[in-house]
């Protein structure tokens, strides 16, 4: 985890050539009277951190602990007024979750969504960012705004429109496919195509965020390197492949980590579009967990949410490991 903090500041960002501190892990140079200075620093630091810590303890840490406790009990909705008059059931909720075929199905669905959705979203985001950064000189702001609108458009409106887009007979997507002679599928009605439909929609909705971050990252790629390579006869693709991509690696990882965290918890898309169907082909872990909350199975639902948490933590750790090996 801490590897992030060490890696990130080292990526030059092109904010002039001002020397950058190496981040929080370096200690300030010791000076005479260090003891008093350290005490003063410690006091100042905790003063600054105090409001955060108070709010954090009350509104985050406490509920987290309570729900962790709940995950080892048989708490149901009726028990919440007497939260401790419940039986401790050990790991029962966890074994129950793993032996539930729908929960297992939801894990597979989530994996599918992440494995296909994250690369697709990133590819779209990167393509848009590269085009806007180096490809064009005019109207950049307009395109940037346009590509960002899906991020800020209300999910309810998105759902209504996308249902029309994905319609089998007259939907826009199948109409366009029809022009090139492809008989489009019954997207949301077909267990094999509902998930691709949702992935398409999620990528559309989220690539704007990645694009903005890539745009920021691209500012760190020195134009001079490109010019030099172009003079040496390197084509656009070669320059992208050998200059831009390597320099973007920290950005790529940041985007992939945040996108993966978001996609591992994907909820809204199936919630508004398919309700998990057809045949549970789009039910996600978060959504199934939410359903268990709705049924009042709080213990089980808490256990499921901690399973999601552990998976998210593992996937994040793996991504950081990859980052460390490659830089």
């Amino acid at each position: 985890m801490s590897s992030t903090t060490e890696v990130t500041p080292s990526g030059a960002t092109g904010r002039g050539s001002s020397p950058r501190g190496k981040g929080g892990d370096t200690r300030p140079a010791s000076n005479p009277g260090a003891g008093a200075s350290r005490r003063r620093q410690g006091l100042a630091a905790w003063t600054l951190a105090l409001p955060f810590c108070l709010l954090f303890l009350v509104f985050t840490a406490w509920p987290v602990i309570q729900s962790l406790f709940m995950s080892f009990t048989d708490t149901r909705s009726r028990d919440l007024r007497t939260p401790f008059a419940v039986d401790i059931v050990g790991l029962d909720n966890f074994t129950k979750a793993f032996s539930d075929p729908i929960f297992r199905k939801s894990m597979l669905n989530t994996a599918y969504f992440v494995v296909v959705g994250v690369p697709l979203t990133m590819a779209m985001a990167l393509a848009a960012a590269v085009a806007l950064d180096k490809g064009i000189t005019k109207l950049r702001g307009l395109f940037r705004l346009g590509f960002y609108t899906p991020v800020i458009t209300s999910i309810v409106a998105v759902a209504v429109v996308w249902r029309f887009l994905l319609e089998r007979d007259y939907g826009l997507i199948n109409t366009v496919l029809g022009w090139v002679g492809i008989d489009g599928p019954n997207w949301l009605g077909d267990p094999n195509w509902a998930m691709p439909g949702l992935i398409l929609m999620a990528s559309w909705r989220n690539f704007g965020t990645g694009m903005i971050i890539f745009l920021a990252g691209l500012q760190a790629v020195p134009w001079m390197l490109h010019e030099a390579a172009a003079i040496d006869g390197a084509g656009a693709w070669q320059r992208f492949r050998h200059i831009t991509l390597p320099l973007l690696r920290p950005t790529l990882l940041f985007v992939s980590v945040t996108t993966a965290i978001g996609y591992l918890q994907f909820f809204e898309e199936p919630f508004v579009m398919t309700n998990g169907g057809p045949l549970n082909s789009t039910i996600s872990m978060s959504m199934y967990t939410y359903k268990q909350f709705g049924f009042g199975n709080y213990g089980l639902a808490s256990a499921m949410s901690y399973i999601i948490f552990v998976i998210v933590a593992i996937v994040t750790a793996i991504q950081f490991r990859l980052l460390r090996e490659n830089t």
Partner: peptide, 18 residues
């Protein structure tokens, strides 16, 4: 950093009771 990874659904009900 740890809490960054916790799904929101985890804390919802306890938070409301609180």
């Amino acid at each position: 950093m740890g809490t960054l990874l916790i799904p929101g659904v985890v804390t919802f009900v306890p938070l409301f009771v609180l």
